Amino acid sequence: MSSNQEKIVECYTGNSEDGRQNYSRNDSLEFYYTKKHLDGLIKNTDRVLEIGCATGYYGFYYADKCKEYVGVDLMDFHIDTFNKKIRESGVKNLSCQVGDATDLENIANDSFDVVLCLGPMYHLPLEERKLVFAECSRVCKTGGIVAFAYITSIGTYAGACVYDDWRKTYPNEKTNDYILNKGTDDERPELFFFTMPEEMESIAKEQKLTKIKNLGTNFMCFMKIVNDMTDERFEVLRPLHDKMCEHESCTGMAGHALLVCSK
C-alpha cells in the first residue's frame, strides 16, 4: 500500500477527474500527446491494463482499438463513475476495479500485452515508484509495452518561475531544496513527487525494461500562454509544441512526460 494513500484519497475527494482532459488547453495537451506517443503500439488483439484509470477517459478512447481494456484506480468513487459509464455505454470489452499501483494483487503475472501507468507516479516517492515499476513489469507479457507518465522536477520549477501569478514567489531557497533536492512539491510535499527522465529510465533498466521513447506531453513554461491564446494563434504555436514533444532533448523541460518501454 502506498504510504500516503490517505492524502491521495483526500486530494481527489470532491475534485472530479471526469473531464479533466478538457479543463484547459494545457491539460488537453497532456492527453493529446500521451495518445500520440502511444500511436501504433496498441493493437486490436491486445489486452490493455491501465493503472490510475480515474473515470475512464483512456479506457473509452482505446476500447475499439484493443481486445480488452481493464482499468485500476485507488479511488472507489472513480471506479463507481467508470462502471456507471460502462453500463450506460454498453461497451463490452471494458472493465475496472479498485487497486493499489504498488501491489496489483489481483492481477496475474504476464497477463497483459500493454500496461499503462498514467497517474500513480505523480503521487509516489522514489522507493514506491520502484514498486510500481516492478508490478507493471510483472503483469506485462514478454514483448509487451509498458508506459509511465510522470512530472518532471526541472520543467515544473522552471515553469513556476516564469508563470505570471507565481514569479514573485519563485524561485526561492525552500523550493530549491524541496523540488531540486528532495524531488517533492514545496507546498504539498507528501502528495506530489517529481522526477527526471534519466531517473525514470534508470528504474526501468533495473526492471529489465527497454526504453522505446521518453517524451514530453505538455510544458509548464507555456501553460498561461497556451491557455490564453486564441485558437488561431495556438495553431501557429502547435508546430513548435509538436517538435518539443518529438525530441528527447526537450523532455526534461516538460511539465508532464511519458516513458514508453518494451519488456
Rank of each mutant, 00 (worst) to 15 (best):
E173G: 00
K174M: 05
K174H: 04
K174W: 00
K174Y: 04
T175A: 15
T175S: 14
N176A: 10
N176K: 03
N176C: 08
N176L: 11
N176Y: 12
N176D: 13
D177Y: 13
Y178G: 00
Y178S: 02
Y178F: 11
Y178K: 12
I179L: 11
I179Q: 00
L180W: 05
L180R: 07
L180K: 04
L180M: 14
L180E: 05
L180Y: 03
L180V: 07
N181Q: 14
N181I: 01
N181T: 05
N181R: 14
N181A: 08
N181W: 06
K182Q: 13
G183Q: 05
G183S: 08
G183A: 09
T184L: 08
D185L: 04
D185K: 03
D186R: 05
D186V: 15
E187R: 15
E187D: 12
R188G: 02
R188D: 13
R188A: 10
R188Q: 15
P189Q: 05
P189T: 10
P189W: 01
P189Y: 02
E190F: 04
E190T: 03
E190L: 10
E190H: 06
L191K: 03
L191A: 04
L191C: 03
F193H: 15
F193P: 12
F193R: 03
F194M: 07
F194L: 07
T195A: 06
T195Q: 05
T195P: 07
M196D: 12
M196T: 11
M196A: 12
P197H: 04
P197K: 02
E198V: 04
E198K: 11
E199V: 13
E199G: 01
E199H: 06
E199S: 09
E199N: 02
M200K: 03
M200G: 07
E201I: 03
E201R: 14
E201M: 10
S202N: 13
I203D: 08
I203C: 05
I203T: 04
A204S: 14
A204Q: 07
A204Y: 02
K205H: 08
K205D: 12
K205L: 13
K205R: 11
K205Q: 12
E206R: 10
E206I: 13
E206P: 01
Q207A: 09
Q207S: 05
K208N: 14
K208I: 02
L209A: 12
L209P: 02
L209T: 10
L209Q: 11
T210G: 01
T210L: 12
T210W: 01
K211A: 10
K211G: 08
K211W: 03
K211I: 04
I212F: 07
I212K: 14
I212N: 07
I212T: 10
I212W: 02
K213E: 07
K213D: 07
K213L: 13
K213Y: 00
L215S: 06
L215I: 09
G216L: 02
G216A: 09
T217F: 00
T217I: 12
T217W: 00
T217Q: 11
N218V: 04
N218P: 09
N218A: 06
N218L: 04
N218R: 11
N218I: 02
F219D: 00
F219C: 07
F219Y: 15
F219I: 10
M220Q: 13
M220K: 15
M220H: 15
C221G: 09
C221N: 08
C221A: 12
F222N: 02
F222Y: 14
F222G: 00
F222P: 00
F222I: 04
F222C: 04
M223I: 05
M223T: 10
M223D: 14
M223L: 09
